[in-house]
Design a protein around this nucleic acid. Sequence first.
DNA 1: GAGCGATGTGAGAGGCTCATACATTGAATG
DNA 2: CATTCAATGTATGAGCCTCTCACATCGCTC
Lengths: 206, 206
Amino acid sequence: MAPSCKGRATYHHGDLAAALVRVTLEIVDEVGVRGFSVAEAARRTRVSPGAPYRHFADRDALLAAAALEVSRRLRALYLEAVATVESPQERLATMAGSVVRAAARFRGGYELLYAPGVRTAHPDVVTAKREFVDLLLPSAFEVVSEEHGAAVALLEALQALARGYATLLLDGVFGDPDEVAEDVAARATRSARALVAGSSVTSADD
Amino acid sequence: MAPSCKGRATYHHGDLAAALVRVTLEIVDEVGVRGFSVAEAARRTRVSPGAPYRHFADRDALLAAAALEVSRRLRALYLEAVATVESPQERLATMAGSVVRAAARFRGGYELLYAPGVRTAHPDVVTAKREFVDLLLPSAFEVVSEEHGAAVALLEALQALARGYATLLLDGVFGDPDEVAEDVAARATRSARALVAGSSVTSADD
DNA sequence: GAGCGATGTGAGAGGCTCATACATTGAATG
DNA sequence: CATTCAATGTATGAGCCTCTCACATCGCTC
């Protein structure tokens, strides 16, 4: 009782689940998804190796919870970035930049969210991703003049472009990710503009 | 001598390194990169758990060798696809389709090559990837009228777009990857065309 | 204030990576 | 041929990880 500082002098932790998610993101940032281990997360929260399994079914469930947290941060990042943007074209293009910046800022976290092969196919994570894309649907509609198929196709393409730039960045194709992040984000945004422009053309003469 | 069938009745395997790469691709296809283990590869080649380490420094080295093999197949796939294509615009757009098809066909293999977080940062793999991109440089030059910066930027964008579609596909965003692969490849190609079109415009008035 | 459900501990089974010492073999050499 | 050697495979084991299970401890409810 009276947990003076952060409350782990007591037998019960207080909020182990949240603490685990926090340190999971830390660890994943430091050593990547592959380097992550539940045991290490337990160690950092000063808890026995078995304790995490009271809150998460297995390693992947913990990673999924962490991924969910990242998706919230990504969403916030994008919403902040488009807050003052009016034109639907720019709102769309901005997404690419946000995704690239998120990749650079969250690193491991981004990897967690979007790397194929990471078993974060948890339903919550899937819907979180979908909801993020849906945020852009209205803008896409405006751009392609209310054509449903074209709007979805455009969003797909934009999403693909953004993810692609992000993976190229993290892959180190452009050099040290931290250094070139802002630059790459700008180029991604520019390419997104080109794509939007090209798409309206295509949908017009299609 | 005279290894009647596949040569594993003998003490020495014959070509363990190649066999390991082969089963590694199989395993990765079945259970993903994360599910892969050197031990399982050893089991499938009917060899002791330590044997693979005679040929590959560690788990990642074996995965890198497998990734190299995949990069060869991707290259072949693309070269076949563009064999009869003349226009540089179409040669560029075709790449996107090839990458998506490769992702669908090789699955785990693709993941191995391009998933962030997979430590395939082996120099050979990196250069293999670069060489693949360089295959497209001439076409890019033609499209943007010899402007170096623009050509590189266009290739980046195309690469990003292709990878993005591929990861979306494997992510299951479009449904069962096997079923929708051809469809998605077509859409990726179309988006690539839009991007190429949009890029020439941009580079013209820039 | 007694009991109960939730949460954490400790020990351990089974699997994996990788190192090290030893066995086997094909090929080169005398 | 017989020998030797480097390459290749085996056996063993240390250390780590995931996940389970019986047990300890705590906060809350009645």
